[in-house]
Design a protein around this nucleic acid. Structure first.
Lengths: 186, 186
DNA sequence: ATAATTATACCGAACGTTCGGTAATAAATA
DNA sequence: TATTTATTACCGAACGTTCGGTATAATTAT
């Protein structure tokens, strides 16, 4: 059997990069192929059902990434809550390249993407809020406060990405990350 | 001279509605025409330079709206700061239909729109921050604090719109508006 | 009549998608 | 070991459709 030119992870990460900078409709198959390091027709070999399937695969990969790099760490009882929080904040910084990149959930929630991926994106955000909300309890926060801080955290990250990106100033994102740390610690 | 079928304001508002739900590339000229209540060729009569000009007109209209409904109110010294803030928060609620609508600045800052409108969008956000920053001084805030709160306000509004929209739950936006009020008053 | 506005029909280019065929490897055969 | 066979990955070219954009004719109001 012939070996693949680009392995699955490289493939998805390349596609993810195109989707999050161009959006769903903004990303053409040619651009996606170029980002993936394959030709357009080859993309259809890897994703026989086409563009929607590619979008779903990227979302699924994103979901796994969050699970592994954020939620699992938040739940890791072998570490102190404070350490877990710092690790997670660092990972969030990496996820968005310190604010220079956008969130693929947001990119795919525009245009036709909302109809196709709307439910998945919604449940991803619910999951984010739920995990951070549970985590807040470990800092002694009451349920209601923890839930509010979790929602506010997601909102401020998404917002700071919008504004940082639009203003080409990632200091806004970095400030926001710091403030989220203070919600729990300070 | 023959009267127009749709006046300029209706025209722009219809176009604005299409752009902010579909994004720049996601909005086809046929959809824009339908949203405007005209046929495609008639749109080209009103905007001879095409889609970019339509986008720029929508942005320009947005800019005027912010000037009239937010910034001018913030500067209205015939009213107490607190009253101005409440009026402005109410107008922001209307602008985004209580969180059920997205921000056209954000919609147009994706995809190819970033290259075309990037500078305009950036200066719009700078203007927003600057006006709120100046306004904060009237609440006795020092320059640095006022600037930070202004940035945080824009971020949390944009973020809450992203999350409210994605989760079909505008209570997140409404909560955010209330919290912004508390930044200054409480 | 004439000027302005709208509508119809149309265009080249780009879109997502499909297909015929080639390249590259592992397994099977000699 | 050398050669064939099977299987999968890849790609150039073309598909029908839709895109942004443009003529040109029809309609409307002075």
């Amino acid at each position: 059997m012939r070996p693949v030119k680009v392995d699955d992870q490289q493939l998805i990460e390349g596609l993810n990069q195109v989707f999050r900078t161009k959006g769903y409709e903004g990303a053409s198959l040619n651009e996606l192929a170029e980002g993936a390091g394959l030709k357009k027709a080859s993309l259809y070999h890897r994703f026989p059902e086409g563009k929607k399937q590619i979008g779903l695969a990227v979302l699924s990969y994103s979901s796994d990434w969050l699970q592994t790099n954020l939620y699992k760490v938040l739940l890791d009882e072998t570490k102190e809550p404070k350490e877990r929080l710092e690790l997670v904040l660092q990972k969030i910084g990496e996820l968005y390249d310190q604010g220079k990149e956008t969130c693929v959930l947001r990119s795919l929630s525009m245009e036709a993407g909302m109809e196709i991926f709307g439910e998945k994106i919604k449940s991803e955000m619910e999951s984010w809020i739920q995990h951070f909300s549970n985590f807040g309890l470990e800092f002694g926060l009451d349920k209601q406060t923890s839930s509010k801080i979790a929602r506010r955290g997601l909102i401020s990250i998404q917002g700071s990405l919008v504004v940082s990106n639009a203003m080409s100033d990632n200091s806004l994102f970095l400030e926001t990350l710091e403030e989220i740390g203070k919600y729990y610690i300070g």
